[in-house]
Amino acid sequence: MTKLEIKSPLPGTFYRKSAPDAPPFKADGDSVSPGDVIGLIEVMKTFHELPAGVEGKNITFIADDQEPIMAGQVIAEVEG
């Protein structure tokens, strides 16, 4: 089984949910498709959707909710 990395295209703050009281876009262990949104990246009060970009199962988040991240940082891994 191959591990596929989902990396941040932008520096900013990573959010796993669309609002504080909303469920996460994806939970650890979920399957993902390339177009599935797995989180948001906030850059200067602007929110950008982060699509998975890969097909796989058993997503594992490396970055925590509301964690500051850098461009190119691994956000999550999935089994391909």
Rank of each mutant, 00 (worst) to 15 (best):
residue 1 M to Q: 14
residue 1 M to P: 00
residue 2 T to P: 03
residue 2 T to M: 13
residue 2 T to E: 11
residue 3 K to G: 02
residue 3 K to T: 12
residue 4 L to A: 15
residue 5 E to N: 14
residue 5 E to P: 02
residue 6 I to L: 12
residue 7 K to D: 03
residue 7 K to Y: 06
residue 7 K to F: 05
residue 8 S to W: 01
residue 8 S to I: 04
residue 8 S to R: 04
residue 9 P to Q: 13
residue 10 L to G: 05
residue 10 L to Y: 07
residue 12 G to L: 01
residue 12 G to I: 00
residue 13 T to H: 01
residue 13 T to K: 11
residue 14 F to H: 01
residue 14 F to L: 07
residue 14 F to K: 06
residue 14 F to P: 03
residue 15 Y to R: 05
residue 16 R to M: 02
residue 17 K to W: 03
residue 17 K to E: 09
residue 18 S to T: 03
residue 18 S to Q: 11
residue 18 S to P: 01
residue 19 A to E: 13
residue 19 A to I: 00
residue 19 A to W: 07
residue 20 P to A: 10
residue 20 P to Q: 04
residue 20 P to H: 09
residue 20 P to W: 11
residue 21 D to H: 11
residue 21 D to A: 13
residue 21 D to M: 12
residue 22 A to P: 08
residue 22 A to M: 09
residue 23 P to C: 08
residue 25 F to N: 06
residue 25 F to G: 00
residue 26 K to H: 05
residue 26 K to V: 00
residue 27 A to H: 15
residue 28 D to I: 09
residue 28 D to T: 13
residue 28 D to E: 15
residue 28 D to P: 09
residue 29 G to V: 06
residue 30 D to I: 11
residue 32 V to M: 06
residue 32 V to H: 12
residue 33 S to P: 00
residue 33 S to G: 12
residue 33 S to N: 15
residue 33 S to R: 13
residue 35 G to K: 13
residue 35 G to Y: 07
residue 36 D to A: 10
residue 36 D to Y: 11
residue 36 D to S: 07
residue 37 V to C: 06
residue 37 V to R: 01
residue 39 G to L: 01
residue 40 L to S: 04
residue 40 L to G: 03
residue 40 L to P: 00
residue 41 I to Q: 02
residue 41 I to P: 00
residue 42 E to C: 00
residue 42 E to S: 09
residue 42 E to I: 00
residue 44 M to I: 02
residue 44 M to D: 04
residue 48 H to L: 04
residue 48 H to Q: 12
residue 49 E to G: 08
residue 50 L to W: 07
residue 52 A to S: 13
residue 52 A to D: 12
residue 52 A to Y: 06
residue 53 G to Y: 12
residue 54 V to H: 13
residue 54 V to S: 07
residue 55 E to C: 07
residue 55 E to V: 10
residue 55 E to Y: 14
residue 55 E to M: 13
residue 56 G to D: 14
residue 56 G to Y: 07
residue 56 G to A: 09
residue 57 K to S: 15
residue 58 N to Y: 05
residue 59 I to N: 04
residue 59 I to W: 08
residue 61 F to W: 07
residue 61 F to C: 05
residue 61 F to H: 10
residue 62 I to W: 11
residue 62 I to L: 15
residue 62 I to P: 02
residue 64 D to S: 15
residue 64 D to H: 14
residue 64 D to C: 10
residue 65 D to I: 01
residue 65 D to Y: 10
residue 66 Q to V: 01
residue 66 Q to C: 00
residue 67 E to C: 04
residue 68 P to M: 02
residue 68 P to K: 05
residue 68 P to N: 03
residue 69 I to S: 08
residue 70 M to C: 08
residue 70 M to G: 10
residue 70 M to K: 15
residue 70 M to Y: 04
residue 70 M to V: 12
residue 72 G to W: 09
residue 72 G to E: 10
residue 72 G to D: 12
residue 72 G to Q: 14
residue 73 Q to H: 07
residue 73 Q to S: 10
residue 73 Q to I: 01
residue 74 V to Q: 11
residue 75 I to G: 01
residue 76 A to S: 12
residue 76 A to P: 03
residue 76 A to H: 12
residue 76 A to K: 11
residue 77 E to H: 14
residue 77 E to I: 15
residue 78 V to S: 04
residue 78 V to P: 02
residue 78 V to E: 09
residue 78 V to L: 10
residue 79 E to K: 10
residue 80 G to S: 15
